[in-house]
Design a protein around this nucleic acid. Structure first.
Lengths: 315, 315
DNA sequence: GATGAATATAACTTCACGTTATGAAAATAG
DNA sequence: CTATTTTCATAACGTGAAGTTATATTCATC
């Protein structure tokens, strides 16, 4: 015999609260409503759920057994409500973000780590790729947000781009590198050190080439290439190699005093790091919340960077 | 946000069966019905529960989380249905029976033990008392069935009495008792042995007095009184005492060869052992089933007793 | 027996859910 | 790539469960 789970809930409420009136109150219903539902349930079952004509109400064996199940329903229902509420407020859910490897590892991941304190129920699915890839994934709904360097006029139709940081790159070397003491290293200074190259298809690699062209370096030695950030940093700190990194990545690591940037202007691409999203995409509250928190974090980071640069100027 | 537990059930069915059509089938509903319910649920929650436009249907994170709760509801519901079904068929429930102590211990309890194999889900609440007590408890709905010796014309108004055995009493002694060998013990034989007396307010005690009067015994020594069956049997088998017991009690114990009955006619009260019930009482299926099974058992017992007596006559 | 609190009943309205019929869309096959 | 099939969504409508307020009953208690 099929029983309406709501009836079991009502029964549990009556049993646990010790009366129709209290039970109805706990359920947010009127007393007559609960009373009639109980009568109908007893009629359907064909047996009393409470000792008839006894007050205060006392459940029968059957009533108690069914109330037990009603409690299970109530609990499941409460849990479900919680899940929905947390989902709707963006405190739970899945956020799928993708972006360029070095920047994701060096800047985004630490920020996500920080955000997890605010959003402990949010799960982040991180994936790596460059612009074309990411745009494709966004279009197919495989990721929610891409974090990329992009030119303002290169934003494809149907996408929105929210800049978060200038796409500033620097030449990086280990702390204590011979060049790091020079105020203005010359081409000749630089030429004697080998380079760590980002993957050949990465924007960072193009930036490296462009920067070297700009300062007049025709030829350069590559000692290591293709690694992700942690490998690059290992090689960088363990040798006198140079590489090109987003300034923000170097900035994030400055307190560790392993890596530093040469004071050498290398010409900035007119790209901005930013959040790319597909226009039609329905974002979950968790995604929206995550996105705004990320933006806020970058705003703060951006101000810290500006402040830091000012401080260095004064010195 | 409050969620209808039935919707969670439907969601669980869809997720577990892998589609609307199958889910609807499993729930015994039409496909459009579950389709609309699902749409409404998604609308209420404000988020898709399944990846939109994907076939075969694949649940979102949120959908999976809620389906989990739906499974809990389904389970509780199924258990509740089972409880009700078993209750309605009399396979589960509470049966409250009361009766005279010696008879309950000696005959009813062994039969109940046997019935538990047929009705493993039925709980029996046994209580002891004499007629007046039991009638009172029946009237107040504190017990469902009383098992008593009663005169056919002494059945109070508003009660039904179903005889199950003749109220035959015998003088009992230990196996191997000196008197047990006598074909027809005389009063003088009997007079030298002490008696174990049932509680003074019991019908058995009155039967004892009546029996002794009938065979002409003016005076008798009481060596033990007030015990329940197991004490009485202990004293009986450990001494040469005599006592009065319902024949059915002695019969039930005959295979143990501890106790036997004297072949002495002691005059039967015109009482019958039977099942007394209050007319107005609403009996649960378990009680009805129990009652009919008890009656059947006694019918069988009664036939076994008759057969036994025939066998003894031939010897 | 009177009083007060709790439960049951009555009368009515609304809306969720069931149905069948049919349209739209996605996957599969040719 | 088009046709077919399967699966899901929508439409339209009837029924009944469950909500409401007002009021009657019933049970415990003083």
């Amino acid at each position: 015999m099929k029983i309406d789970p709501r009836h079991l809930e009502i029964l549990a409420a009556i049993v646990d609260r010790g009366g129709l009136t209290e039970g109805a109150e706990a359920l947010g219903k009127s007393q007559p409503s609960v009373s009639r539902t109980l009568s109908q349930l007893e009629a359907r079952i064909g047996a009393p759920l409470f000792q008839p004509g006894r007050r205060p109400l006392q459940a029968t064996e059957l009533g108690l057994a069914l109330a037990e199940q009603g409690r299970a329903v109530l609990k499941a229902d409460r849990v479900a409500s919680d899940i929905v509420d947390r989902f709707r407020t963006g405190h739970a859910g899945l956020v799928r973000v993708g972006g360029t490897p070095i920047f994701m590892d060096g800047v985004i991941a630490p920020i996500i780590a920080f955000l997890q304190k605010t959003l402990p129920g949010v799960r982040v699915d991180q994936s790596y790729g460059y612009a074309a890839d990411m745009i494709d994934k966004l279009r197919n709904g495989l990721i929610d947000i891409a974090i990329l360097p992009l030119q303002a006029n290169a934003v494809p139709a149907g996408f929105s781009f929210q800049p978060i940081l200038p796409g500033l790159n620097v030449i990086a070397c280990r702390h204590g590198h011979p060049l790091s003491r020079r105020r203005m290293p010359t081409l000749a200074d630089i030429a004697q050190y080998p380079w760590i190259a980002p993957p050949a298809d990465s924007p960072l690699y193009r930036d490296l080439r462009r920067a070297l062209e700009r300062i007049g370096a025709q030829d350069f030695r590559i000692s290591f290439s293709g690694g992700s950030l942690s490998s690059v940093i290992s090689v960088l700190t363990g040798s006198d190699s140079l590489t090109v990194l987003p300034y923000s990545v170097v900035f994030m690591m400055k307190d560790e005093e392993k890596v530093t940037a040469l004071s050498l202007e290398i010409g900035h691409p007119d790209r901005q790091l930013g959040l790319l999203t597909a226009d039609g995409a329905e974002h979950t509250p968790a995604v929206r919340r995550f996105r705004s928190l990320i933006a806020a974090q970058f705003d703060a980071l951006s101000r810290r960077i500006v402040q830091h640069q000012k401080d260095q100027h004064w010195r």
